[in-house]
Design a protein around this nucleic acid. Structure first.
Lengths: 124, 124
DNA sequence: ATCCGATATGAACAATCAAACATAACCAAT
DNA sequence: ATTGGTTATGTTTGATTGTTCATATCGGAT
């Protein structure tokens, strides 16, 4: 009975960065947004893709740039296309680093999680 | 400037378990409560210690036991002491496993985080 | 039998956070 | 100068979640 329950357990985790004062800077949510912007070329389409609201997203992005003190985004308004948003080199570097971090953590976490489940299921 | 900001970054993370249906079972919050109960011997004092409300905590604990389908807590009411709450062996085992998991992750995360910061600060 | 301190539980209230709605500003292309 | 699609922003509404308050239940010790 117990064994069965433990076996059904799924692992989740979240990573985020703050400044020394615990104010949030970058987390999984913003990370996904930045990636989506990089892929789609605009904030609007990024939001549609992720199915999140433009308003909220815009707030988040404003916050992150204020926190960091330098630009991650290159934004333009107007024109035939209406405008666009893309990542600065600094922004690309940041999400690449975060990608990397996540990839490594995914592997390691799963390994240890499997171990943990074994421990729980065993009877010592 | 950038260098300085990245240098001030702090890492945070959260781990939690769900069932296959994504319903939360155990996370950092409940883990801390269980630990505090183990240390203090009662729900009331655990709440005081953690500075959280009894009401909320009680709800959380009820939920976790319902989810898991077996008891983590041994509760008694009445008596000169008013009552008490302690962990069952199964409960102790669970938090020990979670402790262990966190300890390992703390180390590994910090290692990789240090690496990540180095990457960000460097100029390639 | 009474008391005390803890568990147990309902209900009202407050606060926080996200979604939805509305509207303005922008500007290359036509 | 009109158009169109996007960025930019304020305001309002709604949902979710935690806090507070109130009250009942329990039972060993005295």
């Amino acid at each position: 009975m117990k064994t069965k329950k433990y076996d059904e357990l799924k692992l989740h985790y979240k990573i985020w960065f703050t400044d020394q004062n615990e104010k949030g800077i970058l987390g999984d949510g913003k990370w996904k947004i930045l990636k989506a912007i990089d892929e789609t070329g605009s904030l609007t389409s990024a939001c549609e893709k992720l199915e999140i609201t433009y308003r909220r997203t815009w707030n988040d992005l404003k916050a992150i740039e204020e926190q960091l003190g330098f630009a991650l985004l290159e934004k333009s308004r107007g024109g035939a296309e209406g405008g666009s948003t893309s990542l600065t080199p600094e922004g690309k570097k940041l999400i690449r680093a975060f990608d990397d971090f996540h990839e490594k953590m995914d592997v390691i976490m799963q390994q240890h999680f499997t171990e943990l489940k074994k421990t729980l299921i065993s009877n010592d």
